[in-house]
Design a protein around this nucleic acid. Structure first.
Lengths: 340, 340
DNA sequence: CTGAAAGCGCTTACAG
DNA sequence: CTGAAAGCGCTTACAG
């Protein structure tokens, strides 16, 4: 087991000081051609690499950013990670991924653990519990210490920082309008509970579309699902007890579940019921029938978020002005087999 | 914008030295009750947190581990991350996630970037390109420097290190045997090209099962798919031109695609063709019909890998003996609707 | 052209 | 009980 070689050993070997080694390795003209070469040869031979930690300490920045997401298993979030990774790596940054598991406490612990030198900034989407509690002290704390934060998707107005979102309300409005244009009148909504910011906004968009088209908003056609485990029976009941002709679901799991349950109840998709989902994930694509959906470009959101964060990080302290942007990423309705 | 408070400021404020502060904060009995309290009160007031980077440099370990995977988008890998995160966090470790994007170069760059103090050890699954090139110098390099590496899923015999795998050959054998037991004789295989280690092993298991049951291994029923984009037409041709009664697919994308194409060709699943997939992902669960599959417990693999790595990391240098284990995680055949 | 010193933020063995 | 010193691995302004 060979230990890593340091500048110190290099210096000893060549019989110069470590300052000389340091300068030689940066190819400073201050140092004679001769020693520079000797030092570099040695470094190459022993495959010398500078110690990142020492550099971080010296430079007071770590060149790594952290992304905190509620879950990796969700395709959308995985997609965002991918976008963040790409632009981070391009700019010489590493990325630490933290999972909050939808828990407030884990979110807080993760942030506190990393906010002390380990990372330069955060990209995050709020956990459900945090949204429910409306307790954002850990985030304001970090921001007040001068560490930039970029929020995406599940954001809050109570925090002032850069944000990357889609227009959830509008996207839902358009999806609903699309169904209305097809002539459907009894359109059910499968949404989440209201404290999930994006669920609420999508519900708003749905309601707005109905109203604008003089359609009644019928409460019994609106399902706000809390539990992510046992949501089958309420959906089944909704389909069974109402003569609906279309469904707008706020995520792809709800959409695909609706398809399964409708089939079970003898209804054909899309002949009897048209369905639109949200998030263009792997399920929507491979389901039979494949699902018409509002595509939320997660990769793009991640890329944008990373760009905004890195931009803030690389701004000179003196040029810094507190100014926050909210970037809205375009969505798109992807038409597939689940709607006629 | 308030800067982070350091021990130095604390020392100045209380008018003691920084050594005293350091000791007080660890509640050393060496220090008088009185100053200890003063220091701690100040620290609390200003929400002092020790700088992780300085600690890392001092202790020569960063308490963070890195997991390198080919893709986050794959549900299986997302699942492994989740397992790694949990046990890492429980043990006070952070995790950096790196994506190789199936590229050899990115894998090398990631490892070199992080191997210099930033992290204490690696958990990794080889990129396709690395498996194809059979160039593992970056890994041996890191290991020879004394940094522990745990490989999972896509591993290689050419590297000596801890490994976490499933018995791909056996799992494939069992899946094939299951189909044979149902009375199927014309069983097609949708696999990857052979250089993907797990694809090769699963192919071996399939072949072994056929042979053991005195069934002919028919080359035209075996499809080794290279391209992850355009694999539909070969699959379609295979289903169309052969009178097959079952399919064993080496991942869930191939399985679900086979279902779609079979449907398109007027074949019913499972009535006309039974299908078994591999990896119990979100697609298998939500597809219609849902897919019988070999479940590969990614969370468990991640947990195990993290445990093995951390164990190595926390071993005292003197107790260290070079000894590597390969842990085999149980798989399970999950029966669903795609087989009769 | 080369080196000694100070410093990034911390810890700990050793003096006093 | 408190502090000065050395050190983790590095950089850079300053002397010589």
């Amino acid at each position: 087991m060979r230990r890593k070689v340091t500048k110190k050993q290099n210096a000893k070997e060549i019989d110069v000081t470590i300052s000389t080694v340091s300068k030689s390795l940066r190819d400073s003209t201050e140092i004679s051609e001769d020693t520079r070469q000797k030092v570099q040869a040695f470094a190459k031979l022993y495959n010398y690499k500078p110690n990142n930690i020492a550099l971080s300490l010296k430079n007071r920045k770590s060149k790594t950013i952290c992304i905190i997401i509620p879950e990796v298993i969700h395709h959308f979030f995985a997609t965002v990670i991918s976008g963040v990774e790409h632009v981070a790596n391009e700019n010489g940054y590493n990325v630490i991924v933290c999972l909050s598991d939808e828990s407030f406490d884990k979110e807080v612990i993760n942030m506190e653990m990393l906010a002390n030198g380990s990372i330069d900034g955060f990209i995050m989407s709020l956990s459900k519990e945090t949204q429910q509690k409306r307790d954002f002290h850990h985030i304001t704390e970090v921001i007040s210490q001068g560490m930039p934060v970029v929020m995406f998707d599940r954001v809050t107005n109570e925090i002032l920082c850069d944000k990357v979102i889609i227009d959830d309300d509008l996207a839902a409005y358009n999806a609903t309008q699309y169904l209305i244009d097809k002539g459907f009148k009894k359109i059910a909504l499968l949404s989440t509970v209201d404290y999930v910011s994006v669920g609420k906004l999508r519900t708003d968009g749905y309601v707005r579309a109905l109203k604008n088209n003089d359609l009644a908003v019928e409460e019994h056609l609106i399902l706000k699902i809390e539990d992510t485990e046992n949501f089958e029976s309420p959906i089944e009941a909704l389909i069974k007890n109402n003569d609906i002709d279309a469904i707008f679901a706020v995520n792809e799991i709800f959409a695909v579940t609706a398809i399964k349950l409708a089939n079970k109840l003898g209804k054909k998709i899309p002949e009897d019921i048209s369905i639109i989902g949200f998030t263009d994930g792997i399920i929507s694509k491979y389901s039979s029938p494949s699902i018409t959906t509002v595509s939320q470009n997660g990769v793009k959101m991640g890329e944008k978020a990373a760009k905004m964060l890195i931009e803030k990080l690389e701004i000179e302290e003196e040029d810094y002005e507190e100014q926050y942007k909210t970037e809205v990423i375009e969505t798109e309705l992807v038409e597939r087999e689940s709607t006629i």
